[in-house]
Computed example of a mutant assay.
Amino acid sequence: MFAGLLDASHLMPLDTLPDTAVEYARAAGFTGLLIYVADLNRQGLHLLTGPNGAAPGTETDIRVEGTVPGRAYQYGRLTSAAPQEAGGTAWWVPLVDGTERLGLLRVQSTYDDARALMILRKTMGIALGHPGRNAPLGRGSVVALVA
């Protein structure tokens, strides 16, 4: 799923990336995907939006320090986006290029935690360890949507 997005992203304008990423995520069984990129000072994570902007109620700016998404970003760990949402599970997925931290993906799924982890492993190539536990990303685990 994301391999196709990576191939397509080299020729697409940046403002079309969020909507295109959602299309690829839905094809893989996810119900939603948001892309947050870190600022240069690594103090905040900022929603990458398309031409229509963010959906109402979507958090557009997230502090790194003292937040669950910030912890996922700082430690490079897949983290549950608690509390559970009605109708699904959400995860914060570190977005990296080699060892460079770029931001986070917020991936939503209608499946329970174990099923969502299985899909994330298969579609994104992330080495996660035991389902339900946070595990650091391995060196070969590169997810780079913004290059």
Rank of each mutant, 00 (worst) to 15 (best):
L117T: 04
S109N: 08
M1K: 09
S9Q: 01
L128Y: 13
P136H: 14
V107M: 14
L34M: 10
P83R: 12
R121K: 05
L104Q: 05
A38I: 01
P56C: 05
A114D: 09
V93T: 06
L128P: 00
A135M: 14
G103H: 10
G4P: 06
I126Y: 03
D97K: 10
R77T: 13
A8L: 07
L5H: 12
M118T: 11
I62K: 05
F30N: 08
G66D: 11
R63T: 00
A54F: 04
L104W: 02
V64K: 00
S141E: 15
L33M: 08
M1I: 01
P136Y: 05
D113N: 05
G70Y: 00
A114Y: 06
T123R: 08
T110W: 00
V142W: 01
R77W: 07
Q43I: 00
A144M: 05
A82P: 06
R115I: 01
T99H: 14
Q108D: 12
Q43M: 07
T67D: 00
G98D: 10
A114T: 09
S141F: 07
A135S: 15
G4A: 15
I35G: 10
S141T: 15
A8V: 01
A86Y: 11
L95D: 06
R139D: 15
D61R: 13
G103V: 03
H130F: 02
I35M: 06
L34G: 09
G4Q: 15
A28V: 03
Y111E: 09
H130Y: 02
V143E: 04
L145W: 14
I119T: 14
T110D: 09
A135R: 12
Y75I: 02
P13T: 02
S80V: 07
S80Q: 11
D61K: 06
T67L: 05
L17S: 06
G140R: 08
S141L: 02
R139F: 12
Q108Y: 04
R106Y: 05
L34H: 11
M12D: 06
L47H: 06
P136E: 10
E23I: 11
E85V: 04
G66H: 05
L128N: 11
I126N: 03
Y24R: 13
A8C: 02
L128M: 15
